[in-house]
Each structure stands twice: as structure tokens, then as C-alpha cells.
Design a protein around this nucleic acid. Structure first.
Lengths: 333, 333
DNA sequence: TTGAAAGCGCTAACAA
DNA sequence: TTGTTAGCGCTTTCAA
């Protein structure tokens, strides 16, 4: 069998004609319906192979009334935080014969709503990862006919299908650890302003004031560059420990402190968040909070699957985190 | 206007009926065809808004004969190398009204072919990022009716539409730099066996033997963990410089060397590849090679756009790289 | 400027 | 067990 350059796409009718069967029979073979004579079925399969036939996804989708596609919207495809999530969701989707359509909103809260609506045209179900959009938009989307699940966002008074990570608890744990070491003054390097994840962390450090920690907050960001830039300001607060929004920020801080001759943890303690791989390999390795992103992704994929199967209303789920004490935190000098 | 919970999806016929127009007219409004009475058009648009109508992607795709979707296949979604590429491709696609369907082959060369074929059912064009599949599979895919572009892979004798990065040149530059510093014995920590990117780097170090470098090769991998694990073996080769497959591997090596009390670059030099963000912030910062992934992604997106527009055959493009000399390389002791 | 109607490629009743 | 055929929701002639 030789396939020539740029084969024109074969249709089910072509296959039927070539195999001497009806389109219905070909469709049956395609879909594994058992009521087909094995001989005929083999002939059809052979023809399919010869013609290199593949059913059109659009036609199947239209006829079946569903696309077999899961839409995933993330704020930033270049943010490693979302990679494992996407990966796990993809894996879950694939195991149930679905595909994943990914879109990136570029951290643009205003455009998110429109992208989500667009995604709904293509997908049977929608996963909004850490959406930044306003409450009203989220509420409107939730009423659509496409099942929707949200990660890392909870809106008081809005019954959103959601799975969240216990950022609050994670930050509390971090603060508790520092307090135990004897710290009294800490500074939190704040992440994306509209991110729920940032709000929860902030809530966590604030709550820690209850057990005697004095907290200052510095607007920062979520990249290594952001951390590098804000490190001197963090130093000026006089805090004995720096709580970075995430590991990347912490690595930036660590680098800058190194340049400034400030030792970690002897002169100042430093913590990250997320427990990305590289955080284990810095010098010193970062004390941080492990966020099980694969688990989050898997849970999201499965919950979405249930929603799409008709299960109205999954319980909001909260994925626990885990404190990882490593070398970057120590007793204050 | 109140939208109730779980609106049933409206169709173009619903809109037509509600607006007192024909489906043809609604379609015209939807597609911006000018030959519609402004008053009628406004009425249609209003109805669309009220009904929250969105055209079905499947129906449009079927009727138009194209999906408006770009398929992207990557070996590993969790590998940061591909993130910026996906992101740039997405951006290019979006600017021309297309969407991106991403699939992950999980580094499984055997499954890649099947996934690519599957992707073709959904997409108008295909981007295979660093495909690991065999030559024959690649050749077969290239004959399909869906335009296909490949990054980081060139197959001798196969006219593949491709965009590659000059890994060979980058590795040569790294070797040249080390040779100039006075190194004579280096060890290359080899990456994924079937990756063209690894082959090219290997070709680069081998070519460097021409200017007096003695090279040994150690099977390693592409993660920080891999680097951490192989570091002692690298040390045992007696090389005065370690060329890691990429930055992540190098960071792993760096961490392990630190634990072993081996100083970089005083005791041994170390280089990375790719110039990911964090590589600038290690102590010492990594000497590496900058690979313009955004540019690769943009170029790929644009070239694919041209292919899909009917341009038979884009010239194979090679994206240049840039040596970044930083603190992790120095003269041998 | 508008509308009727014929597909697009497939699935799934329904008949045979 | 097989085939015929009516949709699925949209685009796009073709007529009016």
C-alpha cells in the first residue's frame, strides 16, 4: 500500500463504497457495535486501513451532540504551576477517550470570560484554573449548559463546582514553623493581586498575627525576576524571615541576598511555596509547602468527568498541602 | 435579562425564529456579511445576546470544512521547554482566529504516531514538537492531507517542513568557550536517547574533539533529579568540565557537587543549556546557551499558518542560539 | 437585501 | 445482520 503525497480526505461513504457495505455498517464497525458479520467487519477494517480513513471529528461531534473535548483555561501557559495540572487532566481525559483543548488568558482577567465562552463552543466540559475574572462573570458562566469546574477559587455565596488547595493552611503552617524557630517579624511577598491563591496566603499570614507574628506585606509578583527585584525592600522591613509568594520568587530573593552578602538562614530565613523541583536543589534548599498539583489535576479531571456524566453537583473539594522544612529557614540571629 | 440555571443550548434556528429572520440572515450577521439591513442586523444581534447564543463549533467546522484548530503534540507537557513554545504558538494562532489543541505523548515514541493521527481529525494543521517517533511514521504522517510542521527534528532524505534550533552550534560554542579557558577533558551528560536535540548536542561535543577536547559521554536524562544522580559518576571521569544536557540537569549536578564539597567553577566547570530563568539565579549562575523558544514558537505558528493557507513548502528554518557565559565556568585548576 | 434549501460527514432510528 | 434515511447546526449557493 502506497500513500501518495497529500491524500484527499476519505469519508465514511468512500469506505462504504470501497468495502461494498453501507455507511451504517462502517459506522458500526467504527464504533465497535457487535452486530456485524466478522467477515464483513474485517473487510471494512481493511478498507479503512487502505484508505487511511479517519472519521471527521466535526461530523461525529455534530451527530453525537458532544465533542469529546475538555476545555481548560489557564491564566498563563508559561507558569509551571499549571503544567502538572494540565498534564494530569489530560491523562484523566485520555483514559476516558477525551481530548483537552487548552487556552491561555495571558493573566488578562477581562478577556477570561470571553475565552471561556469560546471554549464552551468546543468542549463538553470546562475547567477554569485559578480564574481571575469577576464574580459576576463567573456566575454567568456557571449557568451555561456546559458543565464547569473551577480550581483555586471560591466565591462566597456562589455555589461553584470547585476544587481548591489549602493555601491558607499552608501559609499558617509556614508561619507556625517560623514562630516556633523564634521569629517575630516576617514579611510576605505578595503575588498576583487578583489571584485567589494570593488572597488565601495573605489570609494565612494575617491569621498568624494571632500567635504573635508581626507581618508586613510587600507587593511582588510570581516570577524569579520579581523576587530578585524586591529582595532589598524586603530586607529593609527589618523582618527576620521572608515568606515568598512561591518558590520562584524565593529563588530570586535568594540570589539577590547572596549578591548582597546576606546569608540564608543565618542572617535571614526564607520560605517558598509550591515545592517545585528546583526548590530542593538551591543552596540552601528551600523550606516550602508542597502543593500536590498532580492530585489537584486528577481530582479536577475526575470531578469534571462526573459532572459531564450528569452528576449534578460535586462537593467542593480541598486538597491538603504539606510543610517541607529544609535548609532555608532557621532561628533568627 | 436573567439567565436561568443550565440554559439549554440555543441554535441558529432559535435565534432566527426569535428575531423574525431566516437562518441565512443570522448566519450572515454572525459572519459579518455586509448585505444585511442594519436594523435587522441589530435585531439579530440583540436576540443573540438575549439567548446567549454561540454557534456550535462542530456544526461550523462541518459546514466550513475546517475546524479553526491547530494541533500541537509535545513529548511532555510538564517539560518547561515546551511551555513557551506552546504559548507563542497559541498567541499566533489566536491572532488569526484559531485555537490550539494540545496533546502530550508522555515521551512515548510508539504512541506518538497514533496521537498525531488522532489530532489530525480535529485540526487544520499539526505541529509536532521534537517528535521521537521513527522516520517511517514521520514520513507517513507527512503525506496526510493535514499540513504538518515539525520542530527540532530533521530526517536526512525526508523533505519535512521543519524549524529547528541550532543545538549543534550551541554545543560547539560551549565547547569552544571551555577550550579557551584551558579545559582538555570534558564530560557530556546525555539527554533523551531518541531526541534529535540530544543527537545534535552530541554531534556538537564530538566535533569539538577536533580542537583538542577529549570528550566522554554519560547517559543521564533531562531532569534535575537525573543530574543530581549522575553527578558522582561525572566526577569520576576526571573531566574538568561538565556539559549538562540542559539547565535543569546542570542545577541537579550543581546541588550534588555542593553536597560533595566540590566547588564550581574552582574545582570543576559546569554548563547548562536552554537558559531557563532559574539558571540565572543559581550560585554560581550557569553558563549556558540561550534558546529562543518564543521565537521558535512564533516561527512555527507563522510557518504553519502559511502552510495551511496553501503555501506548499516553507524553507526549513534554523533558529540561532546564543552563548551566555556566567559564573559556573572558569579555568581548570 | 432576503430566504429556501442543499449539503458538510457522521450517528442512530427504523425497516427489512 | 444489514441498509435506508432523517437529522445534528451551520454555511453557502441560488432564486426571488
Amino acid at each position: 500500500m502506497t500513500v501518495s503525497k497529500r491524500t484527499k480526505k476519505a469519508t465514511i461513504a468512500d469506505v462504504a463504497a470501497a468495502a461494498g457495505a453501507s455507511v451504517a455498517t462502517v459506522s458500526r464497525v467504527l464504533n465497535g457495535v457487535r452486530t456485524v458479520d466478522p467477515v464483513l467487519a474485517d473487510r471494512v477494517r481493511a478498507t479503512i486501513g487502505e484508505l487511511g480513513y479517519r472519521p471527521s471529528a466535526a461530523a461525529q461531534g455534530l451527530a453525537r451532540g458532544r465533542s469529546g473535548t475538555l476545555g481548560v483555561l489557564v491564566p498563563d501557559l508559561a507558569n509551571p504551576y499549571f503544567h502538572e495540572i494540565i498534564k494530569s487532566v489530560s491523562a484523566v481525559a485520555r483514559s476516558s477517550g477525551a481530548r483537552v483543548l487548552v487556552m491561555d488568558s495571558d493573566e488578562n482577567a477581562a478577556e477570561e470570560r470571553e475565552l471561556a465562552e469560546e471554549l464552551m463552543r468546543y468542549a463538553d466540559g470546562l475547567l477554569l484554573c485559578s480564574p481571575r475574572m469577576e464574580r459576576a462573570d463567573l456566575a454567568a458562566l456557571a449557568t451555561r449548559s456546559v458543565p464547569m469546574l473551577v480550581t483555586n477559587r471560591q466565591v462566597p455565596g456562589l455555589a461553584l463546582q470547585s476544587i481548591t488547595v489549602d493555601f491558607f493552611g499552608g501559609m499558617m503552617a509556614l508561619c507556625g514553623h517560623l514562630a516556633q524557630l523564634g521569629h517575630h517579624r516576617v514579611v510576605y511577598l505578595s503575588g498576583p493581586e487578583h489571584a485567589w491563591a494570593n488572597g488565601e496566603r495573605l489570609r494565612g499570614v494575617s491569621a498568624a498575627e494571632a500567635f504573635g507574628l508581626s507581618v508586613s506585606v510587600l507587593a511582588c509578583g510570581y516570577t524569579t525576576d520579581d523576587g530578585y527585584a524586591v529582595a532589598p525592600a524586603a530586607l529593609e522591613t527589618g523582618a527576620t524571615a521572608v515568606l515568598a509568594y512561591n518558590d520562584f520568587v524565593a529563588l530570586g530573593v535568594l540570589a539577590r541576598l547572596g549578591e548582597l552578602g546576606v546569608r540564608v538562614p543565618e542572617d535571614i530565613s526564607l520560605t517558598g511555596f509550591d515545592a517545585v523541583d528546583v526548590a530542593r536543589y538551591s543552596a540552601p534548599p528551600l523550606t516550602t509547602v508542597a502543593v500536590p498539583r498532580d492530585r489537584l489535576g486528577r481530582a479536577a479531571g475526575e470531578a469534571l468527568g462526573r459532572l459531564m456524566a450528569g452528576d449534578e453537583g460535586t462537593e467542593p473539594e480541598t486538597v491538603p498541602v504539606e510543610l517541607r522544612v529544609r535548609g532555608s529557614s532557621g532561628a533568627p540571629s
